[in-house]
């Protein structure tokens, strides 16, 4: 930032600082307004150019984050005229709240049931798409189609498919001689149903990102491995996965952040329309759904803010764990 200005000062010498030195002053031009403006320009304008982003981020990102933290220290109900400061009591209550742990376990369970198969299938799908297919663009658009469909429409359709009495899935199970499953009542079954919904939507999207990274891997590495007699599996493990590492880290991160904030799918899956309960006994209520219910239905904004902050911290912790794991798992071939 200061390189331009200091270079100019160096040319001129230190005259400006010693005006009392007698004798003929060498022709040192004074700093004209033009020079000054030019100096300010070089010094400040980069900040101004980038300012709109930070101002917007501050308004819609940072300020709500901090203000949520502030609200979480109060007993703050929507229609109350005064809000009582209660320190960390909301957090203390939260750590003793059974429903919070239920929703946390639900969230992690749905997250694992969705993200793990999703990324494995996405990598395999990308490997398939990377072979010599006819009409490759058609196939690629094909896997992306579920992502383009409206989330709410998907939610309604899947809730219908998994309907306990008249749903297609149970009809099929009965047809092949299996027992019906109450997808609403059973905790684990409901998590699977919701995970299927999430995977349906996101697998193709992730597959395309992985595919793009796969196509960037130089062919000669594979050719060298072939000459050395590496099998297809060995090539996948020792070449493809390590070279996909940055992409996999990105995919895992985004699906972690998304997976821990699952909201629409469990909300629409509930048989009671508009309900935020996540099933009759919260068996598939996620943390965000609980947060929404607390804040906007029960109108306990302080408590909801505390949930939001704890969720934020949980996401950071899990994202860091995932980052380290992914680096290890996909990093076998590379040293740093």
């Amino acid at each position: 930032m200061s390189s331009g200005r200091s270079a100019r000062l160096a040319e001129r010498g230190p005259t400006g600082r010693y005006p009392e030195v007698p004798g003929p002053v060498p022709q040192t031009p004074k700093l004209t307004l033009r020079d000054r403006i030019s100096g300010w320009d070089v010094k400040f304008s980069p900040y101004v150019y980038i300012a709109p982003f930070f101002i917007l981020f501050g308004l819609v990102g940072l300020f709500p984050l901090l203000y949520t933290g502030y609200v979480s220290l109060f007993d703050w109900d929507l229609l109350d005229e005064t809000h009582k400061f209660i320190g960390f009591n909301n957090y203390i209550d939260l750590f003793q709240d059974d429903q919070f742990y239920t929703t946390l376990v639900n969230t992690l369970s749905i997250f694992l049931l969705s993200s793990v198969p999703q990324i494995i299938i996405a990598v395999l799908l990308a490997a398939l798409l990377n072979t010599n297919l006819r009409a490759p663009t058609g196939w690629r658009i094909g896997v992306l189609l579920p992502y383009v469909a409206s989330l709410v429409a998907l939610g309604i359709i899947f809730a219908n498919l998994f309907g306990p009495n008249y749903g297609l899935v149970n009809g099929f199970l009965e047809l092949v001689g299996l027992d019906r499953i109450d997808w609403q009542a059973s905790r684990f079954a409901s998590h699977i149903a919701i995970a299927v919904m999430i995977n349906w939507r996101w697998t193709g999207y992730n597959a395309l990102i992985v595919l793009a990274a796969m196509q960037a891997i130089p062919k000669d590495v594979y050719e060298a491995a072939l000459i050395d007699g590496a099998s297809a599996f060995r090539r996948l493990v020792s070449i493809t996965l390590p070279l996909l590492r940055p992409t996999l880290i990105f995919v895992v991160m985004t699906s972690t952040i998304g997976g821990l904030q699952v909201f629409t799918e469990p909300k629409l899956f509930d048989s009671m329309p508009g309900s935020n309960n996540g099933g009759s006994s919260n068996q598939f209520q996620t943390v965000t759904l609980y947060l929404y219910q607390t804040g906007f239905e029960s109108q306990h904004l302080g408590y909801a803010s505390a949930i939001a902050w704890v969720l934020f911290l949980v996401i950071i912790v899990i994202a860091v764990i995932n980052f380290l794991l992914t680096r290890r798992l996909a990093g076998t071939g590379e040293k740093k």
Binding site: D182, A185, S271, M272, S280, S281, E297, S298
Partner: peptide, 27 residues
């Protein structure tokens, strides 16, 4: 209204899904 929608109705649904009426009431 919220008790009806978010406490009692879901608990009755839980009883229909197999919870005992006593446990459902407690819920």
């Amino acid at each position: 209204g919220k008790i009806k929608e978010n406490a009692v109705s879901p608990a009755l649904q839980a009883v229909e899904q197999g919870k005992s009426p006593q446990d459902g009431w407690q819920q």
